[in-house]
C-alpha cells in the first residue's frame, strides 16, 4: 500500500485502470439495467415499482461503502500522513453524498406508490438521512479553512469520530423506529430473493462499484493536478 502512496506511481496506475473501470461500469450498467428493467419479472406484491430497487439498493450500499472508504483513508492520512490518503478521503465524500442522496430520492419515489407518502420515518431511510448530514458536515469542514492541509486534518478526525458513531446511530434509530411505529412498513420478502431479481441487482451493484472507483480515481487525479497548480502559483508569488 505504501508503494502507491507515491503520486507519480499512483498516476501511472490510475491512467491504466480508469479506462478499464469506466468500460466495466458501462457494460455492467447496460446489462444490469436492461435485465432489471426489461427482463426481470415484476414483484408479486409491488408490481413494476420493484424495479426502483435496482437503483435504490446499490445506491444505499455505495453510500455506506464510500463512508467506509473515507474513514479508512482518513485513518491512513492521520497515522502515516500520506498526502494521497487525504486526497482519497476528500475525493470520496461528494461521491458518497451523491449516492446517499440518490438512495433517499429513489426511496422517496418508491415510497409514494408503496406506502402512499413521499417520506416515511422508516429506520433505514432515517439512518441514511443522518448519513447524508454526516457527509455534508465532512465536506463543509474540509472546505472551511484557508489552509487546505488544516481542512484535511480536521475533516479526517471528524470522519473517524463519525465512523465510530455510525453503528450507534443506526442502532438507536432502529430502536426509536420500533418504538414509534411498529410494522407500518412493508418489508422486502425475507432473505430468499428470487435469482431473477438477485442477478440484475448484483450486476447493478458491481456497476455502481466500478463507477465509484472510476470517479474516485478521476477526482484524485484532479486533486493532484490542483495541488501542483497551488504549488506552482505559490512559487511564482514568492519569486
Amino acid at each position: 500500500m505504501h508503494k502507491y502512496a507515491n503520486p507519480t506511481r499512483f498516476l501511472r496506475l490510475s491512467k491504466i485502470l480508469v479506462p478499464w473501470c469506466a468500460g466495466l461500469t458501462v457494460v455492467l450498467f447496460v446489462a444490469g439495467l436492461g435485465w432489471g428493467l426489461v427482463f426481470s419479472p415484476p414483484d408479486y406484491q409491488q408490481g413494476e415499482t420493484v424495479r426502483i430497487m435496482y437503483v435504490h439498493v446499490p445506491a444505499a450500499w455505495l453510500g455506506m461503502f464510500a463512508y467506509m472508504v473515507m474513514a479508512a483513508a482518513s485513518a491512513v492520512a492521520l497515522i502515516w500522513k500520506h498526502p494521497l490518503a487525504d486526497l482519497a478521503a476528500r475525493a470520496a465524500a461528494p461521491i458518497g453524498a451523491g449516492f446517499t442522496l440518490l438512495c433517499l430520492v429513489t426511496g422517496s419515489l418508491w415510497g409514494k406508490p408503496m406506502w402512499g407518502t413521499w417520506w416515511v420515518w422508516d429506520a433505514r431511510l432515517t439512518s441514511m438521512l443522518v448519513l447524508l448530514f454526516l457527509y455534508l458536515g465532512y465536506m463543509a469542514l474540509a472546505n472551511a479553512f484557508d489552509d487546505i492541509t488544516r481542512g484535511n486534518r480536521a475533516a479526517a478526525i471528524l470522519c473517524l469520530v463519525g465512523a465510530v458513531n455510525v453503528p450507534i446511530i443506526k442502532f438507536s434509530v432502529d430502536w426509536w423506529n420500533t418504538l414509534h411505529q411498529p410494522a407500518s412498513v412493508v418489508k422486502m420478502g425475507g432473505p430468499a430473493i428470487d435469482p431473477a431479481i438477485l442477478w440484475p441487482l448484483v450486476l447493478m451493484a458491481l456497476s455502481f462499484q466500478f463507477y465509484f472507483a472510476t470517479l474516485l480515481m478521476l477526482r484524485m487525479e484532479s486533486g493532484i493536478a490542483a495541488a501542483k497548480i497551488r504549488a506552482l502559483s505559490g512559487l511564482e508569488s514568492r519569486a
Binding site: 443522518v130 448530514f133 454526516l134 455534508l136 458536515g137 463543509a140 469542514l141 471528524l158 469520530v161 463519525g162 458513531n165 450507534i168 446511530i169 442502532f171 438507536s172 434509530v173 430502536w175 426509536w176
Partner: peptide, 13 residues
C-alpha cells in the same frame, strides 16, 4: 452541522 447528527442517539434515548 458537524455535531447535531452525532447527538441523535442521546436525543432518542
Amino acid at each position: 452541522l458537524l455535531i447535531l447528527p452525532l447527538y441523535v442517539p442521546v436525543l432518542i434515548f
